[in-house]
Design a protein around this nucleic acid. Structure first.
Length: 494
RNA sequence: GUCCCCUUCGUCUAGAGGCCUAGGACACCUGGUUUUCAUCCAGGCAACAGGGGUUCGAAACCCCUAGGGGACGCCA
């Protein structure tokens, strides 16, 4: 019997997401349970959005959670490179095969034309998709266009009739009509592969036996099995996990919930508690045990015990669980060490020392001044803002705009935070002092504190976002309608 | 809109046709312990989406309806 090999394939385009950790956990447990290997592959084929920072954060947060990989970046292995941006030659070679066999074709359509087509189809209430415009160009026509160096992509051919039937480990037989499947782009005009193509090629070459991933992929399985067929490869076994949900049951998203693993780390959750909690999303130990370690989960793992209803990622139970670990696991000494490590390693202490020194006369003055750096939320009421010059509605707007600006920062530094907020206060034509007043309250819970700009820089986007949102709520919140108007106004600010 | 997936307490879930008067955990409520609070302990509230079948027997199997979610990109 061949060795089980599973993988997690994150795309380094943002914060390390708890959903990534969730899927990584199940992949790892499945592999370990079968004495197999768990592989990490970086899917950085989106040149525009992939960043080294994001890749670094994702890798280190998986490590923080204890989800180390057997093969992948930093570890090596016999199937590398494990970064798709370093595998271009492989994709070029494989796309040539498909072009030769006629299973893929050049497409010279412009983005504008495709938009147009899609719009027309939508208006006619048809299934949106590529209309096959370039599917039947003659070899001569293609050569002429290539010689004229026209931009092109490469698309796959798809059967027009019949159904694609495949097996899912958890859901059994699934059938999707080929007519539902678009002539997917495999190679983009920048010469890089799309997810669908790179994913299939890499999973095959890396000898992945089981693809365990989120339910969101289930509709693209036909594209993938078709590619396996075109290459005459055996497809892996598919297993689609339920998606983590917001309390309103929609797919877990940072707009509605903290989704960054960094947020949970900064809030002072223990990695083993977070892992334990993720392990109870859609899964239970055969003996019903609720508190368990990663290695206990790996030993007892049984993928057929996954339940398919999308679990709500609701932090109440996580809080209880984390408290239980804090109270019951380890000695008082361990607790002390972990607490100190958390405060120090979070990078929050060192940068505030210079600010702090100017304001204290004795060490005993320190604790009240810095408590908000080490808090999750700060206690505020509408009255906390009563000294602000801005009316509550304007303060709301200022806070929301500030949040959006901060979220858009590509580099997180004191200087960036400062210039962003200064520019924003000018754009809004509000005195800096008045503009910053509600921010002081939102971030520190007090009208006066250490520099709010430094504070934001130090506590980071995740915690800042949580506090700004909380403050907006306290000030009366923003309705959906208002949000739309604000978005418009914000866009005009430039 | 089209297609696909899903549906047990508010939330996470147990449940593989009779062991189900549907079990556990979180949250909530009540009581006990505790100088307060928290912890801890004991108890309580609370669910099989609806309708049809199949079967001696359905939370479980099948069908329909409803509800929820996802996908429909030169993003992954």
């Amino acid at each position: 019997m061949t060795q089980v090999r599973t993988r997690i394939a994150p795309s380094p385009t943002g914060d390390p997401h708890v959903g990534t950790a969730y899927i990584a956990l199940f992949n790892r447990c499945f592999a370990r349970q079968h004495g197999g290997k768990f592989i990490l592959r970086i899917e950085d084929t989106d040149q525009m959005r992939s960043t080294a920072q994001s890749e670094h954060d994702i890798l280190s947060s998986l490590q923080w959670l204890g989800l180390e990989w057997d093969e992948g970046p930093g570890v090596g292995g016999d199937f590398g490179p494990y970064r798709q941006s370093e595998r271009s030659a492989i994709y070029a070679e494989h796309i040539a095969t498909l072009l030769e066999s006629g299973n893929a074709f050049h497409c010279f359509c412009s983005a504008e034309r495709l938009d147009e087509v899609r719009k027309t189809q939508m208006a006619a209430k048809q299934q949106p998709g590529y209309d096959g415009h370039c599917a039947h160009l003659s070899k001569a026509e293609v050569d002429t266009k290539l010689a004229a160096s026209e931009d092109y992509v490469i698309r796959m051919r798809v059967p027009e009739t019949g159904n694609c039937e495949f097996h899912d480990m958890l859901r059994g037989e699934v059938s999707i009509a080929w007519s539902q499947i678009d002539m997917q782009v495999l190679m983009k005009s920048d010469g890089l592969p799309t997810y669908h193509f790179a994913n299939v090629v890499d999973d095959h070459l890396m000898e992945i036996t089981h693809v365990v991933r989120g339910e969101e992929w289930i509709n693209s399985v036909p594209k993938h099995v078709l590619l396996y067929k075109y290459f005459d490869w055996t497809p892996p076994i598919f297993c689609h996990m339920p998606l983590l949900r917001n309390p309103d049951k929609s797919k877990l998203s940072k707009r509605k919930n903290p989704t960054s693993i960094n947020y949970y780390r900064d809030m002072g959750y223990l990695p083993e508690a977070l892992i334990n909690y993720l392990g109870m999303m859609g899964w239970t130990m055969p003996n019903g045990q609720e508190v368990f370690t990663l290695s206990e989960m790996e030993d007892a793992f049984d993928i057929s015990r996954v339940s398919l209803g999308g679990p709500v990622f609701d932090t109440e139970k996580l809080d209880w669980l984390n408290g239980k670990y804090l109270r019951e696991a380890g000695s008082d000494k361990d607790f002390q060490e972990r607490l100190l490590a958390w405060a120090q390693d979070s990078g929050r202490l060192a940068p505030i020392i210079p600010l702090l020194r100017q304001r204290v006369e004795k060490f005993s003055d320190v604790a009240p001044l810095i408590s908000y750096f080490f808090s999750g939320s700060v206690a505020i009421t509408p009255e906390s803002f009563s000294h602000c010059k801005l009316a509550p509605a304007d303060a709301c707007k200022a806070l929301q705009f500030a949040l959006w600006k901060l979220e858009a920062l590509s580099v997180w530094s004191r200087e960036e935070v400062e210039s962003t907020l200064m520019t924003l206060s000018q754009a809004l034509d509000i005195k800096v002092r008045d503009f910053l007043a509600p921010l002081f309250v939102a971030i520190s819970g007090q009208p006066v504190s250490l520099s709010v700009i430094d504070s934001i820089a130090v506590i980071g986007l995740d915690l800042s976002r949580a506090r700004l949102r909380a403050a907006i709520e306290v000030l009366g919140g923003i309705s959906k309608k208002q949000a739309k108007n604000l978005e418009k106004e914000f866009a005009q600010l430039g």
